[in-house]
Deep mutational scan, measured.
Amino acid sequence: MSIQHFRVALIPFFAAFCLPVFAHPETLVKVKDAEDQLGARVGYIELDLNSGKILESFRPEERFPMMSTFKVLLCGAVLSRVDAGQEQLGRRIHYSQNDLVEYSPVTEKHLTDGMTVRELCSAAITMSDNTAANLLLTTIGGPKELTAFLHNMGDHVTRLDRWEPELNEAIPNDERDTTMPAAMATTLRKLLTGELLTLASRQQLIDWMEADKVAGPLLRSALPAGWFIADKSGAGERGSRGIIAALGPDGKPSRIVVIYTTGSQATMDERNRQIAEIGASLIKHW
């Protein structure tokens, strides 16, 4: 067993022997301040990774656009098919120029040779490549099948209805392509620590998230040296922004954090800054 596999296998073990965790309302004060600064709703939840206990939450059962955070769930569904012998990570998928959609920095470079399922998941999570996500959605049967996968996990809230990039439209009061912070946090925890996926697939999923290259201005910008984070960000229309993450000190994750916002007129930089400040408060009061 590799060191990384050992780390993920012992996530519940280490967490069980940690000192009790206590909620700190100071972080919620910052979440509410972010709402004021952005002029928009902000949803927040913080779960203990081992027990699933909610440590703090704000608007945990209000719907927010998922945006690209759905790509972690998508690759979880792909990995479940791999575990069941219905898919192979090494299978190569070929596609054409007509398949390319807006923001496809990886797939646009491989029109000639195609990409493997493993490479597509890596591109979808680490670079948020939209064509990679659409190609992977095709392998599982489309958005409705991802929703069905989530329902089978016990998540009857999260739903995907459309493809990239239309799913980022974020129309107010439109339930399409949305989740709730509580539902997303619980589902992410199941994917990373539950028995739904094999140990190898859980490790692969967290490795992809740990290698995320496009979430630097968010929670990662607030992390002290030595902290662990595996995350996936999302951005959408109407001032929408979000991030889902597993993080913790001492090089291992111990909490799940989900943050979503929508309806702001603020710039992307300002949305990023507010999420980073929430992260800084979380870490300060850990």
Rank of each mutant, 00 (worst) to 15 (best):
E26Q: 15
T27D: 04
K30E: 05
V31A: 07
K32E: 11
K32F: 14
E35P: 01
D36S: 14
D36Q: 14
R41K: 05
V42N: 04
V42W: 13
Y44W: 04
E46V: 13
L47S: 13
D48R: 03
L49Q: 13
N50D: 10
S51Q: 09
G52R: 05
K53E: 07
P60T: 12
E62T: 06
E62H: 06
R63K: 11
F64R: 00
P65Y: 03
K71P: 01
L74H: 00
G76F: 05
G76T: 11
V78T: 12
V82C: 13
V82M: 11
A84R: 12
G85H: 06
R91Q: 15
R92E: 09
I93Y: 09
H94D: 06
S96E: 12
Q97N: 11
N98Y: 11
D99R: 08
V101E: 14
V101C: 10
S104L: 01
E108I: 15
H110K: 09
L111P: 09
G114N: 11
V117A: 04
E119S: 12
S128Y: 01
N130Y: 02
N130H: 02
A133P: 03
L136V: 13
L137G: 04
T139M: 15
G142I: 01
G142K: 04
P143W: 03
K144Y: 06
L146E: 02
T147L: 09
T147F: 03
T147S: 07
L150F: 15
N152I: 12
N152H: 13
M153K: 11
V157K: 10
R162Q: 12
R162N: 12
E164L: 01
P165M: 10
R176K: 06
T178C: 12
T179V: 02
T179Q: 00
A183C: 12
T187C: 05
T187E: 04
L188V: 06
K190I: 15
K190F: 15
L191Y: 08
G194P: 10
G194V: 06
G194N: 12
G194H: 11
E195I: 05
D207G: 11
A211D: 15
A211N: 06
K213S: 05
A215Q: 05
R220Q: 05
L223G: 04
A225H: 08
W227E: 00
I229Y: 03
A230V: 13
D231Q: 15
S233K: 02
S233W: 00
R238C: 11
G239C: 04
G239I: 00
R241I: 03
G242E: 01
G242P: 00
I244M: 14
A245I: 02
A246F: 09
D250V: 10
P253I: 06
S254G: 09
S254D: 13
V257R: 00
I259F: 07
Y260L: 13
Y260M: 13
T261E: 08
S264G: 13
E270M: 05
Q274P: 05
Q274H: 11
G279V: 05
L282A: 12
